[in-house]
């Protein structure tokens, strides 16, 4: 089998196809640790934890995308990430996220049913993950 020289990277959310392009390397935050995908990677299925996907062209990071968990499928020529929510890291607004974290936490306190509580908890977790991602990867 010919060794492909690019990875066909696709990032899909339930609502639409977000990214579809040929890139040199992708670093995906897997549940068991980050993994880099280069052309010719062995087939892999992994769950993805909330974190940042780095897309490399050449040796440079071309795109940094925050994902809120999901799944990744890797074959020698392809890397597909199914994300629940995704947005470029640079578009995350720290203030808005902090507000939504506080909102979610107070909703959690006031929640009347288990369903509401679980919903608030999920939102809080998501906001926390965004904040963590921002902290670890300061935007210049």
């Amino acid at each position: 089998m010919a060794r492909p020289d690019k990875v066909a990277f696709e990032l899909v959310s339930p609502e639409r196809l977000l990214v579809s392009e040929a890139v040199d390397m992708v670093v995906v935050p897997g549940t068991d640790g980050d993994f880099g995908v280069l052309p010719g990677h062995s087939p892999l299925l992994s769950t993805v934890r909330p974190g940042v996907i780095d897309v490399y062209q050449g040796r440079e990071v071309r795109q940094r995308i925050f994902v809120a968990g999901g799944f990744a499928e890797v074959t020698p020529g392809r890397c597909t990430v199914l994300a629940e929510e995704a947005m470029p890291l640079s578009e995350i607004d720290r203030g808005a996220v902090e507000t939504s974290l506080r909102d979610a936490q107070s909703d959690f306190q006031d929640a009347k049913s288990d369903g509401e509580r679980a919903h608030a908890e999920r939102r809080a977790g998501l906001a926390q993950a965004k904040l963590d991602a921002l902290k670890r990867n300061p935007v210049h």
């Binding site: 089998m1 087939p43 299925l45 992994s46 769950t47 020698p76």
Partner: peptide, 22 residues
């Protein structure tokens, strides 16, 4: 899959069951 995996088998992280459960 529609891909030629060259006879390779998927690796699963963390495990097959865990992925399936999600």
């Amino acid at each position: 899959t529609g891909d030629d995996l060259g006879g390779a088998v998927y690796e699963y992280e963390p495990s097959e069951e865990a992925i399936l459960l999600e």
